[in-house]
Design a protein around this nucleic acid. Structure first.
Length: 625
RNA sequence: GUCCCCAUCGUCUAGAGGCCUAGGACACCAGCCUUUCACGUUGGUAACACGGGUUCGAAUCCCGUUGGGGACGCCA
């Protein structure tokens, strides 16, 4: 079959998203596609082919040779999308599964699809003439399929080196946290290195406070980096040196256009609805025309024809015409490097093998690739991770998600919660939801990262946090919640109070979603008598209830053993004698002891509070008042 | 405006042409458990954006439409 024949006959029904075929299809629609003489049919494309894979459903292989499942109801005309139960089984006539031939009045369509092709197919071996309906399909993997599982796995033996490269112009936000996590996990998974580089070439906006915030954030997330954090600015001489080489080789040139001039150019382009790009006005101009007293920037002399292709672990193959890209600035007029240049040089010098970053950098990658090409360097592999949106689907803003990672800490989230939640945002492993960091390292792969942007969902984050709080060991949880309590209390806890907290922790674990809730709930432990009652608690303390409490207090006082079980025994006996439900007595007791209607099991609370404090708190609200 | 990317329950996702009557999780609703609130447990509501095409068969492959997002700085 020659290409023209195929092209005229039909649209290409295979994966024509490569080469000319794709461009024409995109620009001119189907017609252009069909008529394009240079159309490349499927067989010229370099897809992987799955050979001889008939009847891929596993259970067919379990049914035995030459068996066919048929629909006993035999609806001849309608072609049910799915066969309706119950089935009867019939033997297949011969290797070709001819029974599919509507012998029983079934449409061959789905019937033949249920042909059992085990033995005759001999596992993966090809067999003779295709049985009816059992068309030997040769599903071809599109080398740029939309499906993440279709992405070709790029395997290159090497020691993996990843890096996280934040710019210190603000805090570490949640998207940055996830990027760092992915880089860290990928490096750990491969036993490689995870480096940290601070992209501080913008001197005006970079601050030490931001650097500290980022470092603190990473430490809190427990994402340790290898070696010292690299300052990009400190490497500016090396960057300039690389540009000098490009200049010497004619791969870069000086541009004397002023910022104002360029701004005017962009305005004009905008007005004329033209693409916004540098027009190359100094690309081929003689340096002798340079105006006096203007410090030039240095631009890359980028190729103007052909295309630049990114083979991305997440995005697949992405290509752009070089004509779409303008000559980027490498060195500013003050001699400092721009981001585009510095990133390439540093990644190269640091031996970075995999660049994992937000997909807002995808278009930068084309330009960075051009620098790699100009320098003759092998570029790293890329994985551009979709961005995280706020709960409303819009870009993250200060209002919702774009908080510093420290804000999540202050909201009472645990670092393991954040790691688990962030991991699941855009990455999945079957039905797994609760994923330990160890498991994440074992499972993580770039190719399983989804391509669509995801939204932040606080309820789910809280649910995960509740899980990790329940899992958290009591002593650690006590330590974690202590700052929250002390802040609320406005003072430090003494040793006895810490012990009280520690003993109360198990009662709170299943009841709270965040450390803040835990701290709130535990405040009554440290409250000064007499307790301030909330409205509902006050409502519980009717005169009758107060009278009951006074009786109970007397019986409690007589107890020789101060345990939750003993206290419960007393209260149950009392309730039974008085003909009351347990709750009728327990709720006022809860109000008296905690000042609230919500708390851990009240007898445990009383045990932890101790005899004298319990009796005193009851006394405060007793009928004697 | 130009280029690029994306599209399954409200949300995160599973999904590799027939295992899909589309699965799981969060959230929500109802029942059970129960001294409160939770936890736990049982069940329920809920999605393949739309239109074409390819195929015996499409959530899945192709094209288009619509909708969202990103980039287009002497920011990173």
């Amino acid at each position: 079959m020659n290409p023209v024949e195929v092209g005229l006959q039909n649209r290409c029904r295979h994966h024509c998203r490569s080469g000319l075929c794709r461009q024409k299809a995109n620009r001119q629609g189907q017609t252009g596609h069909r008529q394009n003489p240079e159309f490349r049919p499927a067989h010229n494309c370099s897809q992987q082919k799955r050979q001889n894979r008939h009847c891929p459903r596993p259970e067919w292989r379990l049914l035995g040779q030459h068996e066919v499942e048929t629909d006993a109801r035999g609806e001849a005309d309608r072609q049910p999308k799915r066969p309706a139960a119950p089935f009867s089984r019939q033997s297949c006539e011969h290797l070709g599964c001819q029974l599919g031939n509507a012998a029983d009045g079934h449409s061959p369509g789905w019937l033949s699809a249920r042909v059992v092709c085990v033995t005759m197919h001999g596992g993966d071996r090809p067999h003779g003439p295709a049985p009816v309906g059992c068309i030997p399909h040769e599903p071809v993997l599109n080398h740029r399929s939309t499906h993440k599982n279709h992405r070709e796995k790029i395997v290159r033996p090497m020691t993996v080196v990843t890096r996280f490269a934040p710019s210190p112009t603000g805090f570490l936000h949640i998207g940055g946290g996830r990027t760092a996590l992915f880089n860290w996990l990928f490096a750990k998974h491969h036993g490689g290195k995870f480096l940290l580089r601070i992209e501080d070439t913008d001197r005006a906006r970079s601050t030490q406070a931001a650097v500290d915030a980022i470092l603190d954030g990473l430490k809190w997330l427990e994402l340790e980096w290898d070696g010292e954090a690299v300052s990009q600015f400190a490497r500016k001489d090396r960057h300039a040196e690389v540009v000098r080489q490009m200049l010497e080789r004619g791969q870069a040139y000086r541009c004397y256009a002023t910022p104002e001039e360029l701004e005017a150019m962009r305005e004009e382009q905008k007005a004329k609805k033209l693409p916004l790009r540098y027009d190359g006005r100094w690309r081929d101009r003689d340096p002798s025309e340079a105006p006096a007293g203007v410090n030039p920037v240095i631009r890359l002399k980028a190729p103007q024809t052909g295309e630049t292709v990114i083979r991305d672990h997440v995005q697949g193959e992405v290509r752009v015409q070089n004509a779409e890209l303008d000559d980027m600035i490498l060195l500013r007029s003050d001699g400092t490097p721009t981001y585009l240049l510095a990133v390439v040089v540093d990644d190269y010098d640091m031996g970075v093998t995999h660049v994992v970053r937000g997909d807002d950098h995808l278009t930068n990658t084309f330009r960075q690739l051009q620098i790699y090409h100009a320098m003759g360097w092998t570029p790293p592999e890329y994985a551009h991770v979709p961005l995280i949106h706020g709960p409303d689907g819009a870009k993250l803003s200060k209002r919702h998600g774009a908080l510093g990672i420290d804000a999540y800490r202050d909201m009472g989230f645990l670092p393991e919660t954040m790691r688990n939640y962030l991991l699941r945002l855009g990455w999945g492993h079957g039905d797994a939801e609760i994923i330990s960091t160890e498991q994440a390292i074992a499972w993580f792969s770039l190719d399983a990262i989804g391509r669509s942007p995801s939204r932040l969902d606080f309820p789910k984050m809280e649910n995960l946090n509740a899980h990790y709080i329940r899992e958290c060991e009591d002593t650690r949880l006590t330590t974690l919640v202590l700052p929250f309590i002390e802040k609320k209390l406005g003072r430090a806890l003494d040793g006895g109070e810490r012990d009280l907290l520690h003993r109360a922790i198990p009662g709170f674990k299943p009841r709270v979603k965040t450390l803040v809730e835990l701290a709130d709930g535990a405040m009554f432990l440290f409250a000064k008598r007499p307790l301030t009652l909330d409205d509902k608690a006050a409502g519980q303390l009717t005169p009758e209830a107060r009278a009951q409490l006074t009786v109970l207090a007397a019986r409690f006082g007589a107890l020789s053993e101060w345990t939750a079980a003993a206290l419960e025994g007393v209260v149950r006996d009392y309730a039974e004698q008085a003909g009351l439900k347990l709750g009728k007595v327990a709720q006022p007791l809860r109000a008296a002891l905690t000042g609230s209607t919500v708390s851990p099991p009240i007898f445990e609370v009383a045990e932890i509070l101790g005899k004298s404090e319990t009796l005193a708190r009851i006394g405060d609200v007793g009928s004697a008042n």
